[in-house]
Deep mutational scan, measured.
Amino acid sequence: MALNTPQITPTKKITVRAIGEELPRGDYQRCPQCDMLFSLPEINSHQSAYCPRCQAKIRDGRDWSLTRLAAMAFTMLLLMPFAWGEPLLHIWLLGIRIDANVMQGIWQMTKQGDAITGSMVFFCVIGAPLILVTSIAYLWFGNRLGMNLRPVLLMLERLKEWVMLDIYLVGIGVASIKVQDYAHIQAGVGLFSFVALVILTTVTLSHLNVEELWERFYPQRPATRRDEKLRVCLGCHFTGYPDQRGRCPRCHIPLRLRRRHSLQKCWAALLASIVLLLPANLLPISIIYLNGGRQEDTILSGIMSLASSNIAVAGIVFIASILVPFTKVIVMFTLLLSIHFKCQQGLRTRILLLRMVTWIGRWSMLDLFVISLTMSLINRDQILAFTMGPAAFYFGAAVILTILAVEWLDSRLLWDAHESGNARFDD
């Protein structure tokens, strides 16, 4: 018995066209964080690309023209004298008006014999932002004059995390709450300039795509075929072959399989920071003279006294001054041990922890910024005066060393310790 099946006739004509040209192939790229070699397709503007294995951002879609970056830099340069030299806060102490600005706080630190601690604050609040705007201006002028731009481009990517104007702005709020127990506070004209400078700096850093600047100024022929001998440069993120001198053909720094002496430098910085954190938390970090009496505060006791007036601000200072430094030390110690013992479990967790400490590390400088600003506000000789204690130097040095330890660690070593050939990683 035959089955009668109805015929289905399409209502619209289906047209099949042959592909007349070869589909576009992607360029081969190595991930600078996990060293995976993959094919990167062509990316349009405002599109980002991520590593298929570790999800690290390979290409950032946010990109401004150099002219727009230069305009932002010149605007920031105009704001800087007002943000640093004009009063941020006014207080009335014992019937006398006192003005506080950024430069005055750094000068008070240096004047009291601790120039190293003052230079830490100076670099993060004044030096690094000033280098940022002058570097962008150098790129703008240098591109037109045919100057060598490689050193500036190499420095810009590392400079971003040292620009800490946003953290200093939080420190202004913390210092205001600490001082309000002794005097009446009012915002100064410099505060508005400083807030504007923070906003412009944040926007500029978020749109400063150094890798795209490398592509514009020093374009290189990408690798179009897969080759395990391809290496990625950690300076400019170019994937290719080393030249005859073993250097990256684009930025001219040595092109090595792994960062040289990464573990040794990381261990040295980490152990030194552990040693410095002990006096930083045991010795007094601030000293207040009130009517001839002397009151010393460690980091913890200062947080407890701050909690009596504002528990939320005390929580912020606790996280930045105690929780973050010790968390960074514990995480980095764990990561280094996992590399030495070739741990194969929990790779995803370790990668996330490394990215976390990379982002939060700079916030530990908050305590030094609060001390710097408070020193310029309260300084009335023996009637009422505020000065920093010996722990300030140890704390600042420990924070900087932990930042350097994270920067010096080559994250690809975590993958080397893991089993080879993993296309995915999980716990």
Rank of each mutant, 00 (worst) to 15 (best):
A2N: 13
T5D: 14
I8P: 15
T9M: 12
K12V: 10
I14T: 14
E22K: 11
E22M: 08
L23D: 10
P24W: 12
R25I: 11
G26I: 14
C31V: 00
L37I: 10
I43E: 09
I43Q: 09
S45Q: 13
R53L: 10
C54L: 00
C54I: 00
G61T: 14
R62Q: 04
S65V: 10
L66A: 14
L66S: 14
A70D: 14
A71I: 13
A71C: 10
M80Y: 09
F82M: 09
A83P: 11
E86D: 10
E86G: 04
P87V: 06
L88D: 03
H90G: 06
W92Q: 04
A100H: 04
V102H: 02
Q104R: 04
Q108R: 03
Q108D: 14
M109D: 05
M120N: 03
M120G: 04
M120T: 04
F123L: 02
P129G: 04
P129V: 08
L132E: 02
S135H: 02
Y138R: 01
R150V: 03
V152R: 00
L156T: 07
E161N: 12
M164S: 03
L165V: 12
I167G: 05
I167T: 09
L169R: 03
G171M: 03
I172E: 03
I172Q: 06
G173S: 04
G173V: 07
S176K: 02
I177V: 07
D181N: 02
Y182N: 08
A187K: 15
G188I: 11
S193F: 01
F194I: 13
F194M: 09
A196C: 15
L200R: 00
L200N: 14
T201S: 08
T202L: 15
V203R: 08
V203C: 14
S206C: 15
H207T: 12
L208N: 08
N209T: 13
N209L: 05
V210I: 12
V210S: 12
V210N: 13
E215D: 07
E215N: 07
T224S: 09
R225Y: 09
R226P: 08
K229W: 07
L230Y: 08
C233K: 00
Y241A: 12
I253E: 13
R256E: 09
R259A: 09
R260M: 06
L263T: 08
K265R: 03
A269K: 01
L270W: 05
V275E: 08
L276C: 05
L276A: 05
L278A: 11
L282S: 05
L283W: 11
L283S: 05
N291P: 08
N291F: 15
T298D: 05
I299T: 12
M304V: 04
M304T: 09
S308Q: 12
S309R: 04
V313E: 02
G315Q: 15
V317W: 01
F318W: 05
I319D: 13
V329H: 09
I330K: 08
T334A: 11
L335W: 04
L337G: 12
S338H: 11
H340D: 05
F341W: 11
C343T: 09
Q345D: 13
R348S: 11
R350M: 09
L353C: 13
L353R: 15
L354I: 13
L366I: 09
D367V: 00
L368V: 13
L373M: 08
M375W: 03
M375C: 08
M375H: 10
R380M: 03
D381N: 06
T387Q: 04
A391H: 01
F393S: 05
Y394N: 09
F395G: 01
A397R: 00
A398F: 02
A398L: 03
V399N: 05
I400L: 03
I403P: 03
V406H: 02
S420I: 11
S420N: 11
F425S: 15
D426V: 12
D427P: 12
